[in-house]
Nucleic acid binder design. Structure first.
Length: 803
RNA sequence: GCCGGUGUGGCGGAAUUGGCAGACGCGUGGGACUCAAAAUCCCAUGUCCUUUGCGGGACGUGUCGGUUCGACCCCGACCACCGGUACCA
């Protein structure tokens, strides 16, 4: 007989809900454990089988920690602002709010049906004004501290759609919807000064228990590089420009300079003779999208301005060129070109027949640029030095002569924070008719989104909010007219701090009680997809550091330990997608196999970080295991099995204690697949036994309960308990039961196993050697050979070197 | 191109970090139970060679080489796939 999952699961889900089993006591005396999931965007498609992968992992940890005596915070919420709802509203005329609310209801029902142990009293939603009040409050603080500013930034403007598009909505320079052309257009935008935190974001990565590859991605994104800024004067002009270089040691090899096409000096320095050539080139570059520009990059292009810079180190004249391989957005938008020792400059110089000078020996400049280390030549006071010394000597020289200095540059740019959208947090700013700008006073927060009859693009590039009366304000004191900011915040905003609000979700007076934050931060384990490795995690760290600086949060970093789960692929090893028709719906699995099976299977598929294809056979196997567990405990008649008795059975000692040890350790380190396989080993052994000690069987149910909580609760009840298993103490193991008195020792000859001998667990080296050499098989094998050496690893093996 | 990761049976994956490769699950084959089937239980299952049989042997962790008594594990070179990034001066 097998168990009725539909009945059992409903029963315990109702029990948990009624008794509020998973309610967290914010101010508990117990030690805390904060297990966080990346909250989902509630799409119309409902939960995907990928969601329960990480959610089950954190749920298992949460359930184990509760049993280990921790106060566990394990919350869930909704990243509920977002593009699809707005697009849906534009397409159908329906409200994005109602649409999102109904999606949330579906997600929540599905999560409850999987049996996640969330404290639903802490549910939050980024679109809830009670929540975004504090998102707006944080923005105001950033603004007050000078970290939010307005700038002209080029955006993707699509005239045919009358709107601004996000990068992911632009494909090959055309709009994703309709395939209309998209242009770069500068618009007034809000920007957050994340670059002010670049160094701290980089340095503090060191202390985090995150996967190394993910830290690397953040390091690369921040892209710190050390070098020097060098000042060049322009021949015949009372002007100078700075360049950034990581190789100031090669300054003697700089034979020309290059400006980005957008560099402000270009129009001023260009000579009459070169004017039309330069204008042609600028025009050519302007009409190209970013994508075409990178395509173009395979072949370098550029044009001479006619002007010359003076190399400060040797007063040589260097022609100034314009080329789009120099980016206005990095460094100073101008470079000194050292074709002998930079691949890009080499390629450019070769194409336009500019001089190439060797200043570091070791390469063959007739073939390629040499970027390696070597003795400097043709460099006066640097001659004979290697790169490192030459760099610092040159920086000294630059500083002494007042033409440059040591400089650090980052790849990281400030964060474009405004979206021309309706469905997002309004930015709490008012622009007054006298040209001033103020923030919305705290007592007027939250500044709520107006209900709108119809959401459609304004046509001016502003958000649909510009169509509403909501934008117009009059100062009640002065009568001055003003206009509200029509830009809204990006989806990232709400997710930058949601884990703080879970700690104190209903607080009307502050973001969260500082005492509570002190208890619960940092998050102990945060699991989510690798797609958020850079942006979400970097933005959240930035806000957290800012909140730390203004004394709102007590820790420098939000997430101590982070883990990226893998992806679940379709049965054909392809990404699941509607168009391929290989999407597995969790609802179907819950109904056919049960939530416990779904949880068990997803955890058993492979390591949490791996991407593995869904397998219906594997799913059946998971269910089969749970059935075997059931039959081990429950007789045909539905009563507790007669084999389970209050008596010892020495034959179970080892496997039980091993199982407790391995499951406990593996859960802790997120190796759920091997923990489950150990539980299978226990059940296989149990099936061979006539007597099953009740202690052990209860311990096993506890070990299983985080993975298959419904089944475990049911078995726990059948074992004669009235209360939930949730807070029963986690089993302990007895180290002494793990070792057997007599163990098997492998005997190798030249590293190959030839025989096995039995020996006492603490047999000495000499004993083992003697026993091994006395073995019949071994005697045969070494017959006629000389034993050169015998290596003995006590408790493991004996290796005989003989030839 | 650069950075990071991975590579083990028919499949998903184990292997205490240098010590018996293939745990556990799936699949497959055989058997038991059954009138029969499903379910369940038991046995076998890396490849090749050898033996009537018991058994025995060789090879084997992407490829080639190295270190070591001993290598999936360490070192060097290469190949393939996955992720990130894109002229970052």
């Amino acid at each position: 007989m097998s168990f009725h999952h539909q009945e059992i699961e409903k029963k315990w889900q109702n029990y948990w809900e009624e008794k509020k089993t998973f309610k967290t006591d914010t101010y508990s005396e117990k030690e805390k454990f904060y297990a966080l999931d990346m909250f989902p965007y509630p799409s119309g498609a409902g939960l995907h089988v990928g969601h329960p992968l990480s959610y089950t992992a954190t749920d298992i940890l949460s359930r184990m920690k509760r049993m280990q005596g921790y106060e566990v915070l394990h919350p869930m919420g909704w990243d509920s602002f977002g593009l699809p709802a707005e697009q849906y509203a534009i397409d159908t005329g329906n409200s994005p709010k109602d649409f999102t609310l109904s999606n949330i209801a579906t997600f929540k029902r599905q999560m409850k049906e999987i049996g996640f142990s969330y404290d639903w009293d802490r549910e939050i939603s980024t679109m809830d004004p009670k929540y975004y009040k504090w998102t707006q409050w944080i923005f105001k603080k950033l603004y007050e501290k000078g970290l939010a500013y307005v700038d002209e930034v080029a955006v993707n403007w699509c005239p045919a759609l009358n709107t601004v598009l996000a990068n992911e909505e632009v494909i090959d320079g055309k709009s994703e919807r309709g395939g209309h052309p998209v242009y770069r257009k500068p618009m007034r935008q809000w920007v957050l000064k994340i670059t002010a935190y670049a160094d701290r974001l980089l340095e503090d990565l060191e202390e985090l228990d995150w996967p190394e590859n993910l830290k690397d991605m953040q390091r690369n994104w921040i892209g710190k590089s050390e070098g020097a800024e060098v000042r060049f004067s322009i021949d015949g002009h009372d002007k100078h420009f700075d360049v950034f270089t990581t190789r100031p040691d090669t300054l003697f090899g700089a034979t020309y300079a290059v400006f980005a096409p957008e560099h402000p000096y270009v129009k001023e320095i260009v000579t009459e003779a070169q004017k039309s050539a330069v204008e042609d080139y600028l025009h050519k570059v302007e009409t190209k999208s970013d994508l075409e520009r990178t395509d173009l990059a395979k072949d370098k292009t550029g044009v001479f301005t006619g002007a010359y810079a003076i190399n400060p180190v040797n007063n040589e004249k260097m022609p100034i060129w314009i080329a789009d391989y120099v980016l206005m957005s990095y460094g100073t938008g101008a470079i000194m070109a050292v074709p002998g020792h930079d691949e890009r400059d080499y390629e450019f110089a070769t194409k336009f027949e500019l001089p190439i000078v060797e200043v570091v020996s070791g390469g063959d400049l007739s073939a390629e640029a040499y970027v390696g280390d070597g003795e400097h030549v043709n460099s006066e006071f640097l001659n004979g030095l290697h790169n490192e010394e030459a760099i610092s000597k040159m920086i000294d020289w630059l500083e002494k002569n007042n033409v440059g200095k040591k400089q650090i540059t980052y790849r990281l740019r400030d964060w474009l924070f405004s979206r021309q959208r309706y469905w997002g947090e309004p930015i709490p700013i008012i622009h007054w008719e006298d040209g001033t700008m103020t923030t919305v006073p705290d007592e007027e927060l939250p500044l709520e989104l107006p209900e709108m009859e119809e959401i459609k693009p304004s046509g001016t590039g502003e958000s649909p909010l510009a169509n509403s009366d909501w934008v117009n304000v009059i100062d009640p004191k002065t009568g001055m007219k003003g206009r509200r900011e029509t830009n809204t915040m990006p989806q990232w905003a709400g997710s930058c701090w949601y884990f703080l609000r879970y700690i104190d979700p209903d607080n009307p007076d502050q973001l969260a009680d500082p005492e509570a934050l002190k208890k619960w931060l940092p998050v102990d384990i945060y699991i989510g997809g690798a797609e958020h490795a850079v942006l979400h995690l970097l933005y959240a760290r930035f806000w957290h550091k800012f909140l730390y600086d203004i004394d709102v949060v007590p820790t420098k970093e939000p997430f101590m330990k982070l883990f990226n789960q893998g992806m679940i692929l379709g049965e054909g090893n392809e990404k699941m997608s509607k168009s391929k028709g290989n999407v597995v719906n969790p609802d179907d699995i819950i109904s056919s196999h049960g939530a416990d099976t779904l949880r068990l299977y997803e955890m058993f598929m492979g390591p949490l970080e791996a991407s593995v294809a869904w397998s219906t056979n594997g799913l059946d196997g998971a269910r089969r295991f749970l059935d075997r567990v059931w039959r081990l405990f429950i007789s045909e008649e539905g009563a507790l099995s007669g084999k389970i008795i209050e008596e010892e059975n020495k034959a179970m000692d080892k496997v039980y204690n091993e199982t407790v040890k391995k499951v406990t350790e593996d859960f802790e380190t997120l190796q759920f697949n091997t923990a489950i396989s150990q539980m299978m080993v226990f059940v296989n052994e149990g099936n061979k036994q006539e007597k099953l000690p009740k202690d052990y069987m209860e311990g096993f149910v506890k070990l299983l309960s985080p993975v298959a909580p419904h089944l475990a609760e049911e078995l726990w009840e059948k074992l004669g308990h009235e209360d939930t298993i949730t807070y029963e103490p986690w089993p302990a193991y007895d180290e002494t039961k793990l070792v057997e008195d007599e163990i098997e020792i492998a005997v190798q000859i030249m590293g190959k196993v030839r025989a096995k001998i039995h020996a006492a667990k603490d047999a000495t080296k000499e004993d083992l050697e003697e026993q091994a050499l006395a073995n019949e098989k071994i005697k045969e094998q070494i017959e006629g050979k000389t034993v050169r050496k015998v290596i003995v690893v006590p408790g493991k093996l004996v290796n005989i070197v003989a030839n």
